[in-house]
Structure formats: C-alpha cells, structure tokens
Simulated scan of single mutants.
Amino acid sequence: MILITGATGVLGKETINFLLKKGYPAGNIIALVRDDSKAADLKASGVVTISGNYDNYNSLLSAMKGVEKVLLVSGNDVVKRGSQHENVVKAAKESGVKHILYTSFHRKNETETSPIAFVAQSHIHTENIIKSSGLTYTILRNNIYLDMLPVFLGKVLETGVFYPAGDAKSAFASRNDMAEATANILAGQGHENKEYNLSNTENISFQDVADILNAITGKTISYLNPDSTTYQKALAEAEVPAEYIGFFAGFAEAIKQGEFASGNTDLEKLLGRKPTSAKEFLTNVYK
C-alpha cells in the first residue's frame, strides 16, 4: 500500500494519476485529503481516500495502517510545516511504514544568509528528522517548477519580462515531469536511502524566457531587470499582498545568486526521456 499526502494538490494528484497509468492498482493507493469534497475524481478512479491533515496526529496514524510507502508532499504553510512534517514522520515510524519519500527542494545555500531561508529551513529540518528517524527514505530535491514562470511573469505580454533575476540561469522543470518521476520511484525498486536532483537538463535565464516568448508570440517582449526595491514597489502599486511581494522578491534574489542552476540532474534518468523544455512549456501556455 502507498499513501500519498496532499493528494488533492496538483503534485499529489498527478503522481496518483501517473501511478494509475502505469497499472498500479487503485485499491493499493491511499489518498490523504483535507477536504473530502475535492476527492470525488480520486474516489471515482478507485483510489482509497482518507480524511486527515498534518496537524491531526491520530488521523495520520489511521491513514498509515498497513502502509508500506508514504509520499510526504511538503505542506504549504511555511510557518507550521516543520512541526507538521514531524507529525508525519513520527506517525510513519509508529505505524511501521517501511519507506518515506519527501518532496524537498533544490538549493545551494543552506545558511540563514539565503534569500529564501524562510522556505529552506523547514525543508532542511524535515530532511534531517527523516534521516535520523531510521526510516528508509528517498529525498526529492525539486527545482522551481516551470509552472511558476507565468506567476513570476504576470502580465508579461503587456509589460515585458519584469523580474530582478539578473542574467543567472536556472534549471526550471515542469511539475508534471516531477510527478511522473515520483510515480516511477514509488512503483519501482532500488531507490532506498537516495537523494535525487529533479532539475531540467537545460538552464535558462529570464532573458532566454523573453526570447522564447518573442518567438512564440511574434511580439517584441523585452527583459527588464529592475533592482529589487523598484520591483517590490511595482508589485505594491499593483496591489500584490505584502507576503507575496516578499516571496517573489526572495526567489528572484535566489535565482540571481544561482541557487537553482544545476549542472547535473536525475530527472531524465527517472523519466526515461528528456524533460519538458522551457520552450515546450511556454508554448503550451502562451501560444
């Protein structure tokens, strides 16, 4: 039995869909869901759904009865997720789970000087408690999703690429590819106590993004590389909530510092094919 947490989120649900496509028995998949009303499609496919959440320890214990593998999809509550993940790892240990997989993230700077330390700290903490738990583990170091580019770009066809990332390159990879690779690991063998870098085989800059959009749309789209203060002021004037401004600015600075550049990746090997390129992804979004 496999338990997928965050099963109604995009990554969790797509991982389940890939497991089903590969012929993994639906009845051997348990989906942990916070909101049962969002799980109708999972139920229709034959997947077992159990209501629970990372804050409810007893619900985690109930969900993990008879489970051999758990996919811990990282929570989206940056403040609370360190303790939430501790609950999942502790429940997995108590329930006799044999193997836990965790969706962490790709990084280079693990100190408090990182511009995204507010994100990194809980991931590093979770990796450490998993390794110290004695559970067999697989750590997935997911790079930034290609799916985040439209979020970072905003009204790009009107304003151009306005993002303070300098000329640094990053190995953005699609969330869909990461879900497929995760499903392959869950359904496969030989992944025990390993850490995988799920990055693309290409590294691109935001100037490259502008060039791709030019080719796709036939418009002249410039790359504007403002300083961080100017960027944050522009977001504030566009009435972007303050917490999101800090998030966007932090990731921009991390990209600028090369946090998400990658010279090697396990994604192609795990997929058995080349990952989706930025050009392919952006063409699907903006064509």
Rank of each mutant, 00 (worst) to 15 (best):
Y196T: 00
L72P: 06
D55N: 13
E112W: 11
A40I: 10
S95E: 09
Y196M: 02
T159V: 12
I4S: 10
L32E: 06
S205M: 11
A26F: 01
E68Q: 13
E268M: 00
Q121Y: 10
D35V: 03
Y24F: 15
A168W: 08
N58T: 14
L72S: 01
Y137E: 01
A278W: 14
V10A: 07
K269W: 06
L224G: 07
Q232D: 09
G218P: 04
I245D: 03
N200W: 09
E14R: 10
N225I: 12
I185Y: 08
F281D: 05
L135T: 06
L135K: 04
A173S: 15
T182N: 04
F152K: 12
V119D: 09
T283D: 14
S74Q: 15
M178F: 03
I30P: 03
V78Q: 12
R81S: 11
L224P: 08
T230G: 05
Q121L: 00
G188K: 10
H106E: 06
P275V: 03
K131Q: 01
A168Y: 07
G258Y: 12
G9E: 12
G96H: 05
K287R: 13
F172N: 07
G9P: 12
E158S: 12
T126G: 09
L271S: 03
D35S: 01
I2K: 06
F260V: 03
H99C: 02
D211E: 15
I29F: 11
G154M: 02
K90V: 13
E110I: 03
D208R: 04
K287C: 03
Q84V: 07
P150F: 07
L267N: 06
F152M: 15
T126L: 06
E202N: 02
R141T: 07
L267K: 00
N142A: 14
A120G: 06
A40N: 07
K233W: 00
G188E: 00
Y286Q: 06
L140W: 01
R273D: 01
D36W: 05
T265F: 10
G246Q: 11
V156C: 12
P226L: 09
L153T: 05
T265A: 04
N214R: 13
N53H: 00
K80I: 11
K169W: 05
L72H: 11
N58K: 14
G258P: 03
K13T: 04
I144W: 11
S59Q: 04
L71H: 05
L235D: 03
T182I: 11
T229E: 08
I185W: 02
A40R: 08
N142E: 15
T283L: 07
T159Q: 15
A44L: 07
D167S: 14
V67M: 00
L135G: 07
N203Y: 15
N284T: 13
T201L: 15
A40P: 06
I245L: 01
S262C: 10
I29K: 07
T283C: 12
A234C: 04
N214V: 04
Y102F: 10
K155M: 13
E192M: 02
E112D: 11
N109A: 11
N58G: 12
G52C: 01
G52V: 09
M64F: 12
T113N: 15
I116M: 15
V161S: 13
F251H: 13
G66K: 01
I204D: 13
I129C: 07
E202R: 12
E202H: 13
T217I: 14
G246H: 04
E202Q: 09
K65N: 13
M178A: 02
Q121R: 14
I221N: 06
D266T: 04
H191T: 04
V151M: 14
I245T: 04
N143W: 13
S122Y: 14
